[in-house]
Design a protein around this nucleic acid. Structure first.
Lengths: 201, 201
DNA sequence: GCCGGGGCATGACACATGTCATGGCCGGCT
DNA sequence: AGCCGGCCATGACATGTGTCATGCCCCGGC
């Protein structure tokens, strides 16, 4: 029997996935958690062969949880199962030593199939997604630019960002301008959106 | 047997929900669709007692689909099952004659339970959500303001919005300014975010 | 009929934002 | 050592945005 840990914040979806997996004769869900920061503890208690992690979760996100789990129990294979196939997510997942990356709109039979392949030592990545991740490359933003762009989320004004980061307003403008150019956007709002989509933050 | 139609765009989630429902002896999933604009056709072909609709879907969204389905087959009860419990969604759902509104992070057993109650003629609404919907009232935005604010999504510049809606730039600025005041935001970015959260779009 | 209120539309003005040129600092290279 | 290139930081300037006062039109109340 393949022992599976399931981490997903939406209870209904989590239990539905468990129901789906219960149809497989060789798979058994041995633990379910709804928060990223419970993953490692649950894994140590239940000793799964495979951990199935969502990315959007309260506590810590699935990618961070993946890195921690990898450190705590390297023998556990990790499968990321998420809504958004953002290339940046895929890149971070790969860096965290994840074995597979699935998006939730692939057909349901892929799930069991992927779990088995991962346990056999394979890596399973959607080819389209992999191509997209390679195509847009790594982030061209400097650390400081990331800081500033990140702080400009939720519609903060420049003065507030400057105060928050102990910078002159002119400097903040400069970084944002740089971000706008590098993303090819028309203003900081769009720059933020594009950078997030590409996983540049 | 209760005949259920399942509409949800993410294939894996859709089939997982079907698996979940298959454990119920008195429930049968008679149709599955992945797009909002296929709901009515599938309902007419399969004659379900209950339609379970997600909101975020390609084609037309679940709330619009609900309204159409209600017109085409008023005898079919409608349950909205969605990720975001935005009060605005709930309000629109009620206006569309929906029987129940569930969020995906409620426990899985609620699903079957809700389907049965709805068929018995009950309306099932999360009390917290209902309270929130009443608390923030209806949208104070005029139709034109909604148009303009909506067009300003994805970081378009004022000139572009003006061109798109055949307005003077000054007029666009004026509407946006009005939106900013009514939402209590500091700029149009934040106004957009707040209005979306409250379902004012 | 005649207001009065509200939505729609506009342009002038003040201010916030984006662009540019510049300089200091550090690390790699010749 | 000296040079070069990249990141960090700044202020001056042009442009884009938000606010305001104003007028038009339509509809409902008096």
């Amino acid at each position: 029997m393949i022992r599976v840990l399931l981490a997903e914040d939406q209870a209904m979806i989590r239990e539905a996935l468990a129901a789906l997996l219960s149809f497989e004769d060789d798979i058994e869900v041995v633990a379910q958690v709804g928060r990223g920061d419970e993953v490692v503890r649950a894994a140590e208690a239940s000793g799964p062969d495979v951990a199935l992690l969502d990315i959007e979760m309260p506590g810590i996100d699935g990618l961070t949880a993946a890195a921690e789990l990898r450190r705590a129990r390297p023998q556990t294979k990790i499968v990321i199962l998420t809504t958004f196939g953002r290339p940046g997510f895929l890149r971070r997942a790969m860096e965290s030593g994840v074995s597979a990356f699935l998006v939730k709109d692939s057909p349901a039979d892929k799930l069991a199939c992927t779990i088995r392949r991962v346990l056999a030592g394979d890596r399973v990545i959607d080819p389209d997604l992999a191509a997209a991740a390679l195509a847009e490359g790594i982030s061209p933003l400097t650390p400081r630019e990331r800081d500033v762009l990140g702080a400009s989320a939720d519609g903060a004004t420049i003065a507030q960002i400057a105060q928050e980061l102990y910078l002159s307003e002119g400097t903040v403008r400069n970084y944002l301008s740089s971000c706008i150019q590098k993303t090819g956007a028309r203003n900081r709002t769009e720059a933020l959106r594009l950078a997030e989509e590409r996983g540049w933050l």
